[in-house]
Design a protein around this nucleic acid. Structure first.
Lengths: 192, 192
DNA sequence: GGTTTCATGTAACTAGTTACATGATTTA
DNA sequence: TAAATCATGTAACTAGTTACATGAAACC
């Protein structure tokens, strides 16, 4: 499981509560490993039981106590162990791809609309990533340490999102240019 | 859930047993939605309970009976309904990205070796996809119907894999060219 | 006075993984 | 004779999702 290790990385960079980690995940590691707050709370408790992190309750005025987690030396060892261990490339999952495969068995116009929605979503994400790149890493050749690693992950996000946009464009071009000859063209409301 | 729909697509194209579907998944839809045989068997039974498919036991000589599944009209309706429904772009998951973020807290050489392994794996997959493209789709402009949809999904696979290879190259160039200044360079066996 | 933020939690669920079992048949 | 293929299954587990609850504070 990588969530534990993703949390260890985040906590090594800065201690935090479950709530704070859920926030931080939304805008960095979360690009490549999302997690809901419930998952994070549960995993942090498991990690505490395993002795990888120490949770210290911090009373607060006006608002509920928070539990501040800090990695233990066992946690830091575990993180180093995991980094040294080879990772499996892992399975891609893409529902849109399954849908495109299914296109012959349903409403093609609806599919085209959905591909457009995906294209828009990827364009938006790409814009966010480019904005982060321009703001935080204007001179990438001088980067170093954690800054460099953050930048490289961001570059991965940019490549993946740009790739999806190009793929959506290719799919749209193919699906809108050549009407499928298996169904009658220009026919609205196909009856089964 | 998309596995049910992925199975419906596969069964609409050709009826098959759970075992056969597990095989087929390895080399087409499975590129974008892998599944183990247990998952497939379980899902097929659930789909049969829901009336989306009909399973007919087929006795065989010498080997165990197989159960041949065929989509029902309710299943075909469900597939059409699902295609018309918008899909969420969904979360990326990439363990290697988490590892790169973690690179400052572990053995950098081991990470570089792991990125190389990933690069090799993606190059290999890309080679497989290119081979399929050249063999099955030599003239993409003349494609049509299910053939076109298969081709478009394959194109997505090619773009994604090529993107990963380029990303790995970028990461390797950055991690091997500039030794991290946070740790002493040329030092073997970093003590904590 | 209604929404958003902070902060954590329980409970019930769906999805996916790993290990193991059966037993005949074909291939090396 | 050992391994792989065909074909399906049970059982136990880990991972992830969805819905709901609590309660004060700050913001509009």
């Amino acid at each position: 499981m990588a969530l534990e290790h993703a949390l260890l990385v985040a906590l090594t960079e800065r201690s935090g509560s479950g709530y704070e980690l859920a926030r931080r995940f939304d805008k960095s590691i979360g690009f490549f490993h999302g997690a809901t707050h419930q998952q994070i709370y549960r995993t942090l408790r498991r990690m505490e039981d395993a002795g990888w992190v120490e949770g210290r309750p911090v009373p607060q005025d006006g608002r509920p106590d928070k539990k501040l987690y800090t990695p233990s030396s066992a946690g830091r060892d575990e993180l180093a162990r995991w980094i040294a261990e080879p990772t499996e490339p892992g399975q891609l999952r893409n529902e849109l791809a399954v849908k495109i495969r299914a296109a012959a068995h349903g409403d093609r116009d609806a599919l085209v609309a959905d591909v457009r929605r995906h294209r828009d979503a990827h364009v938006e994400r790409l814009g966010i990533y480019h904005a982060i790149e321009a703001r935080d890493f204007p001179v990438p050749t001088e980067l170093d340490g954690t800054d460099l690693h953050q930048y490289l992950v961001l570059r991965g996000g940019i490549r993946v999102e740009a790739g999806f946009v190009e793929w959506c464009d290719e799919v749209l071009a193919a699906l809108t240019a050549a009407p499928t000859r298996t169904a009658a063209p220009h026919t609205e409301g196909s009856s089964s």
